[in-house]
Computed example of a mutant assay.
Amino acid sequence: MRAAETVTFGGLGGLDRAAWLRGDETRQRILRTAPSSRVLPVWRGKPLIAGEGRDALGLLPVDHPALRDAGLWLYLGQVEERAIYAAELSGFQPTGVDAAAEVAFFDPGEQSHPDLPGDHRFTELRGVMTSLSPLDAEIAATARGLFEWHRSHGFCARCGQPSEAAVAGWQRNCGACGASHFPRTDPVAIMLVTRGDNLLLGRSRGWPAGMYSLLAGFIEPGETLEAAVRREVFEEAGIRVGAVRYLASQPWPFPASLMLGCHGEATSEEIDIDPQELEHALWISREEMVEVLAGRHPVVKGARRGAIAHFLMQAWVADSLD
């Protein structure tokens, strides 16, 4: 698929991850204090977004007063030889926010910091991801995914003792048993399943009213991508799939997935859903999908803009999967 890397978080932004610098403690000490280095503050998974248009990251100099609340720092890489970090503001408590409250799946609220201008606010990444430049989107996705991994992997998987961040945030080491742990990514197959000029859509319980998307599921151990597509579609919707081909991928740090977009050709059409997996599924024509993507369909609402599901739907409607 020629346009594959234009998907949101697709990696065309130009971030040089400079992995060779992660374990160089001398260079890290220099970069952590360099006037040219920049830091993306993150609070509860929300990156700092700047400007009234909510279209740019709020990158700060390393000595900015707002960073005094920072806990873990991550080295994300370089942009034109300028070091880029992310810092979790674990000590920051916005006014009016319950510190003990669980983080919502999608928190539409925005939080300001007293040491920052009023147009700098901590914002849910899914709400602004299509407004950011490819570079800013890649930086924000990398930061969010890494912080989520540290948050959920604070203990050694081998012995259960606390582990500590190392290698500029790209590793966790256990002081008790000596094990090292590395950031994980869960592979997920997401399927554009067609039969003739119709597309298979499904919706899960709890989704916003009318919202439908492509079917998706985690790839299991010992399973190929193609086999996962066929298994998931049959398990969820009772549809048999024949030919499968890969189209595009998307890092999806909510919390730690790599979405692997595929096109599957259905060999059956009678839908038989698993109610534990789906609330409803349907076939929809290409003409109807034009109305869905335009927001004019009377019943069906499409996937979130910026998600690979929306990206693949648009490509199918435009007949540009190749």
Rank of each mutant, 00 (worst) to 15 (best):
A266D: 15
A281Q: 13
E270D: 14
S285L: 09
L282V: 07
I284P: 07
D274A: 15
E288N: 06
H280I: 02
E279K: 01
A294G: 12
E269W: 07
L278E: 13
V299N: 01
W283M: 04
E279G: 06
E287A: 03
A281C: 09
L293I: 02
A294S: 11
Q276H: 14
Q276A: 15
P275H: 14
E288Y: 07
W283H: 07
H280E: 15
H280C: 03
Q276F: 11
P275V: 03
E270P: 03
A266F: 10
A294H: 04
H263N: 04
E269I: 00
D274T: 03
H263K: 12
E265T: 01
E287S: 05
A294C: 03
E265I: 03
V290H: 06
V299L: 09
H297T: 04
E269L: 06
E291I: 03
V290G: 08
V299M: 04
Q276E: 15
I271T: 15
H297F: 01
E279Q: 12
V292I: 05
A294E: 15
H297W: 02
R296K: 09
H297G: 06
H280W: 12
V292F: 09
E265G: 00
P298F: 06
L278I: 11
E269V: 04
E287V: 07
W283A: 00
E288D: 14
D272F: 03
A281M: 09
S285R: 08
R296D: 01
I271W: 08
K301G: 03
S285F: 10
S268G: 12
M289W: 02
S285H: 05
P298S: 00
L293E: 04
E279L: 10
E287P: 05
P298M: 07
R296I: 00
D274W: 02
A281P: 05
S285A: 05
W283I: 06
L293K: 09
D272I: 01
G264L: 14
S268T: 15
E279S: 08
W283Q: 10
E291V: 00
G295F: 02
K301H: 08
S285D: 12
I271Y: 06
A266Q: 15
Q276V: 14
E277G: 07
E270M: 02
K301Y: 01
W283G: 00
D272W: 01
E265P: 03
T267A: 08
L278Q: 13
A281L: 11
V290Q: 12
E277W: 12
L278Y: 12
V300Q: 00
R286H: 11
H263G: 09
A266E: 14
D274N: 15
I273E: 10
I271L: 13
L282D: 10
I284E: 02
I284S: 07
E288V: 07
I284Y: 01
L282T: 14
E270R: 14
G264Q: 11
V300D: 09
H280S: 11
P298D: 01
D272V: 05
W283N: 07
L293P: 01
A294F: 03
R296C: 00
L282G: 03
E277I: 05
D274I: 09
M289Y: 00
M289L: 10
V299R: 14
P298V: 04
V290N: 01
H280Y: 05
Q276C: 11
E265V: 06
E270F: 01
T267C: 04
A266I: 09
L282P: 13
G295I: 00
H280K: 07
I284V: 15
D274C: 11
